[in-house]
Design a protein around this nucleic acid. Structure first.
Lengths: 335, 335
DNA sequence: TTGTATGCGTTATCAC
DNA sequence: GTGATAACGCATACAA
């Protein structure tokens, strides 16, 4: 697989490599029609493909971006990536994906790897632990966009769900249907942005309705211990009449619990989940969910990053909030 | 963000850039302990990061591979990718992901993009339409591994499910429970490897049991038309007592159909699906599925590719079959 | 042990 | 219009 270079093309076409370079970059004005044709021929005959690596070295642009996220197995991540990919490829960018698994040292390693690879910009769902590294990048005006999570005091463009509103939608839907003892089920840690904000939103929404948000009703646990935690929650003297699952994984746990304990939904317990899940319609009864526009979020993140890449000094570091959407099904209705 | 290069480090350490290069590549033998220390210092003080692009150009290796698949939104793809990522990163490789959407021209475009980027190898879930391109790569001994789909006559290492066995497992499970009129539901096109092989396996397994495989019972349709197709199937004079869904997407359609028509499972209709789905346990009744080891497949594909990259002449082009696993739940039991 | 020179494949700045 | 030639940042053979 001996590589055919621009020099081979030049020889074959009987011109210099500079002229070929001109041709390749579409600067046809400086070129006779016949030269142009000869080069075209030569390129085809030799099956020449420009070496992007060499070009990148020279131009100091790789037309590649990096995406750092927790785990590609989460459906939110998958959708975001898909949207990013679509935008980027339309613009001629390639995407390198990194699963940091919410592990700060892995995240750091990936960031440095990406920088060494000279990617033109990075989109990340950041952990809070590499704040210094991100700050340094920000100071250098390095193109950077966050998704889903916000890091305080860093002032980097962030695309995320309007989490408080999402939680409020859940509460309102439930209170509208006459439920008053409403609990929230959340994964740990609860410090990351979406969880924190949703819990805040939940509390506020309850207060707006004149209901008390008792700490008893905020059930947080790691995924593995969630069944036990739920058992505790339902064993309270005043068990909740309704539970809001803070995300899809918690929701799955809640569904398992409901099923194993043969609870009737919404009769024994009304439920509602943030994040849409594929089988919401298929569950019995169909599940009320709050969908977030993951594709929109990904698309806008990519668009913003590319804009930053093209004009490094238009650094409007802001937070863009995306609207949650209530999909009303039977699991949250009056019992 | 003026880039700091190896020359800056050399100056700072008071040595030549070759010495620094030696240091960076771990050839410490040719170096005084003090020199080594000085370089280390300089690197840290300057925050120097080697430019991978320049290194790649020189070494003609990018430590990057490309993955081409239909759509990252499919759970099989997601799992495969995750496994590939894990292996690759452990070996210092980065992964560029491309969604070809089963569109041959998109696939072609991506392949050429990846080659231009000088990726060290490619893992693909190939369409059948770029066979010439793949053949050319194969002839050049370019490292290439296929996943999930086989292309006849190309002789390229392929990692895939033992599809016939998977289908046979379904049939056997159903016949063991007394079902005889067993249909298969499949997406179109049926020509791609996994679907084709599963249909073959289905037919053979029926024959093994002395049952006839009538064409009537092989219901194929694009996703959008599957509900209609199912209606036709169940309207036959002799409707099936059981249906095998060929993959997760078909299975979802089947579940929707069952639900909308209030069929009792397995009383009115036994069902079973190939591919595991996350809510198999949560459905009512729990769903029997055939799981495929997507992570294993991805891991082995990555391992094979890296081996090819390291030794381009160990080109054992074979097909590796992975074992399906029956997860027996209530949807396929005796009614 | 360390330094010098050269090349990787391209693009860009000039002359011609 | 076209062609030398010098970078881009690094690795490496070879000289010192």
């Amino acid at each position: 697989m001996k590589t055919v270079t621009i020099i081979d093309v030049a020889k074959r076409a009987g011109v210099s490599k500079s002229t070929v370079s001109q041709y390749l970059n579409g600067r046809y004005e400086y070129m006779g029609a016949d030269t142009r044709e000869r080069i075209k021929q030569a390129v085809e005959e030799l099956g020449y493909r420009p070496n992007t690596i060499a070009r990148s070295l020279k131009k100091k642009k790789t037309k590649t971006i990096g995406v750092i996220l927790a785990n590609i197995l989460y459906s939110f991540s998958t959708k975001v990536i898909r949207a990013i990919e679509d935008v980027c490829n339309r613009e001629g960018y390639q995407v390198i994906i990194c699963n940091a698994d919410d592990n700060p040292s892995k995240e750091k390693w990936y960031i440095e790897m990406l920088l060494a690879k000279q990617v033109d910009g990075i989109i990340a769902i950041p952990t809070k632990s590499n704040i210094d590294l991100y700050r340094k990048l920000k100071e250098r005006n390095y193109p950077l966009v966050f998704v889903d999570r916000y890091i305080d005091g860093l002032d980097i463009s962030t695309m995320m769900l309007h989490n408080e509103k999402a939680a409020k939608m859940c509460v309102d839907e439930l209170t509208d249907n006459g439920y008053e003892r409403i609990a929230m089920l959340t994964m740990e840690p609860i410090s990351i942005t979406p969880r924190f904000e949703r819990i805040q939103g939940y509390k506020k929404a309850l207060e707006d309705k004149g209901l008390k948000a008792t700490e008893d009703y905020i059930a947080s646990a790691p995924l593995k211990e969630m069944q036990t935690r739920l058992k505790e929650l339902m064993a309270l003297k005043q068990p909740p009449q309704a539970i809001i699952a803070i995300n899809d994984l918690s929701f799955m746990q809640l569904l398992t619990f409901v099923k194993e304990n043969k609870l009737e939904v919404p009769g024994d317990l009304a439920i509602i989940g943030i994040d849409d899940i594929s089988f919401a319609d298929l569950f019995d009864p169909p599940l009320t969910t709050i969908a977030q526009p993951a594709f929109d979020i990904g698309r806008e993140a990519a668009a913003a990053l590319i804009q930053k890449i093209n004009n490094r000094y238009v650094m409007d570091a802001d937070i863009r909030r995306f609207e949650p959407r209530l999909i009303r099904r039977a699991s949250s209705t009056k019992s």
